Simulated assay, not measured.
Amino acid sequence: MAQAPKVELTGIIPPLVTPFDAAENIDIAALRAEVRFHLAAGVHGICVTGSTGDGQMLSVEQSVTVARTAVEEVNGAVPVIAGIIRDSTAEVIRYGSALKGTGVDALQVTPVHYLFQPDEERTIEYYRRITEATGMPVVVYNVIPYALIPARTVYRVIQEVDLVVGVKQSGGDIHQLADLLKASPSGVVLTAVDDLLYPAYLLGAAGAVSATLTVVPGLCVEQWNAVAAGDHKTALDIHNKLLPIWRSIDGPNMTMRIKAALAMLGRDGGLGAHPLTPASEAEKAAIRAALVEAGLLPL
């Protein structure tokens, strides 16, 4: 059976936004700057073309451009994960095969979600076919609310598909995350339950890949290090700073809210792709208030 290439997925792994220019092309300069910013913050990995990166809107060519740019900028310093959000096994394999050529370390793959959910055996076969066709390590991205993969199926996928190296548990379901962590499968369990990052680490999560990390990677690295050092007062204090930030960016237009937050912090997340709804003035005010409360912006 195939053995997964060595890849260590642990700690703070921010999912980057995809900056677009006015013509809805990838703004490569802005993307490079964001990668450099995150590396300087001490992150342990980079994820591109996921939900926070509008991966569902990207062509295979755009996905390759983003992934290749990130890999070049990272230059081996940390692992790079590339997300795939497609609705058929064939399309995931097409994207995965193209992304393999960019030098990314792993793929992050959602289940199919429009319109009908496959059963357990087909879900396992889905990930097996993807890994066999691409030869790439895969993280199961368990995020789709109406196509959430049950914990027992995730266990089986990790145990039965050699190149599946872990799961990113999202969708706001701390109960499923707790079930996955209790089972302690051989693969890595990463959290994307943003309002409960701190307790997820205490329960044994190997790290996080979530939107809050994208906005304030420095604070998230500081919290991760505090937990590792047993400094729970600092970790809890940071949790209370992160929570309002997450509440302010959480919403149907999340990637646009994140880009608004980046702009307030002096970073360039680029424009959004049509028809994403820009952050409203009320949303921007809530974001600014959260950043002020966290001590990241002046009053």
Rank of each mutant, 00 (worst) to 15 (best):
A2H: 05
K6F: 13
V7M: 06
L9Y: 00
T10L: 02
T10I: 04
P14V: 00
V17C: 08
D21A: 09
N25G: 08
L31I: 11
L31N: 11
R32I: 13
R32C: 15
F37Y: 05
H38F: 03
H38M: 07
I46H: 00
C47L: 11
C47Y: 00
V48R: 02
G55T: 09
S59I: 02
E61S: 02
S63K: 01
T65P: 00
V66K: 02
A67C: 10
A67H: 03
R68H: 10
A70E: 03
V74Y: 08
V74I: 14
I85Q: 00
R86L: 02
T89A: 09
Y95R: 10
L99G: 14
G103V: 10
Y114H: 14
Y114L: 12
F116H: 15
P118Y: 14
D119Q: 13
Y126F: 15
Y127M: 05
R128N: 12
I130H: 09
T131I: 07
T131Y: 07
T134G: 11
G135W: 09
V139R: 03
V140L: 05
V140W: 04
Y141R: 04
N142R: 11
V143Y: 06
R152S: 15
K168S: 09
G171R: 04
D173M: 07
L180M: 11
A183N: 14
V188E: 10
L190I: 15
T191Q: 08
P199Y: 04
P199N: 01
G207C: 11
V209N: 01
V209G: 04
S210T: 03
T214V: 06
V216D: 03
G218Y: 01
N225W: 03
A229G: 09
G230Y: 05
K233G: 11
H239T: 08
L243P: 02
I245P: 03
P252V: 07
I258W: 03
K259V: 07
K259F: 02
A260D: 12
A263F: 06
M264N: 12
G269E: 02
L271V: 07
G272N: 03
H274L: 13
K284M: 06
K284V: 01
A290F: 00
L291Q: 02
L291N: 07
V292C: 02
L296Y: 14
